[in-house]
Write a protein that binds this DNA or RNA. Structure first.
Length: 271
DNA sequence: CGCTATGTTGTTCC
DNA sequence: AGGAACAACATAGC
């Protein structure tokens, strides 16, 4: 689930549960999930407490009381679960911060695409990884510049974290739908009006998603997301709407840049 | 079994 | 050099 709205929801959850408690131990099931070796991570963090959080795109940074910074990346399926030690360990909690309070913060890693490690500082990390400004902070000017200097379909350009940070495969389809732009439009030929529509749609979609704590099923019926096979449980499947909110035609499914892509052939036409 | 998956990175080609 | 395209990563679920 972790695109920008999910990571923002995790960040808030982290703030509500895991600050100001000394870390007693860090349990790591698979060291491949660490970007800092286990000994260094443990020696640095044990005894310290988390004191603040910051999110940039899909990256969560957590600062400690002695000035260290821990980076969390949730991959495709990462999650957080805070629970008391007396309870059973959550499924796929492959890294666990055990606090002296008796509570634990589990980093849920079903597919092992998730990562945790120490970073020297946030700015240098973002620069090294070529991560653009957060999708909720970027200016229209910088977004337009970053989009137009590329020569590719607009969808993969928006997914690239060096264009704008935080947009994933579900949000990008929703943004392009709301902006009425075909996912295979050439990024270098978009007009001022079109990049502005994308800019506005990014804010609208992300703010809506964060409001609903990334519960996609509760999004407005004017959203494309309801056509997506985002949850195949019987209940959700019954709520799936293949017809575009415009009422004229069914949402089409194609592949763009190797990724499943949903769009409305009526509302999002190529120029 | 075969296929898909919310993300990122490494490789290859141009 | 640098960008675009795409396979690979590890696992779960249908």
């Amino acid at each position: 689930m972790p695109e920008l709205p999910e990571v923002e929801t995790y960040r808030r959850y982290f703030e509500e549960t895991s600050l100001h408690q000394p870390i007693e131990f860090i349990e790591v099931e698979d060291r491949k999930l660490l970007t800092t070796d286990y000994a260094t991570l443990t020696e640095t963090l044990v005894g310290q407490s988390f004191v603040s959080t910051k999110r940039v795109g899909k990256n969560l940074f957590v600062q400690t009381n002695q000035g260290n910074t821990v980076h969390f990346h949730f991959g495709m399926t990462g999650d957080l679960e805070y629970y008391h030690s007396s309870l059973e360990r959550p499924r796929h909690a492959r890294i666990i911060f055990v606090f002296r309070s008796g509570f634990n913060l589990g980093f849920i890693c079903p597919r092992k695409f998730e990562r945790i490690g120490l970073v020297e500082n946030i700015e240098s990390y973002l620069k090294k990884k070529k991560i653009a400004p957060d999708a909720l902070d970027i200016s229209l000017e910088e977004l337009s510049r970053n989009v137009r200097k590329r020569k590719s379909f607009i969808k993969p350009v928006l997914l690239d974290q060096s264009t704008v940070a935080g947009i994933g495969n579900w949000i990008v389809d929703e943004v392009l739908f709301q902006a009425k732009i075909h996912p295979e439009s050439w990024s270098n030929t978009l007009t001022d009006n079109e990049t502005e529509r994308i800019f506005i749609a990014i804010r609208y979609v992300l703010e809506t998603a964060i409001e609903h704590e990334a519960n996609y099923g509760r999004f407005p019926t004017s959203f494309l997301i309801h056509a997506r096979e985002w949850d195949t449980s019987p209940y959700e499947e019954a709520n799936r709407h293949l017809l575009c909110p415009c009422g004229k035609i069914e949402i089409a499914q194609i592949r763009v840049g190797g990724r499943a892509t949903y769009y409305c052939p009526e509302c999002q036409q190529l120029r």
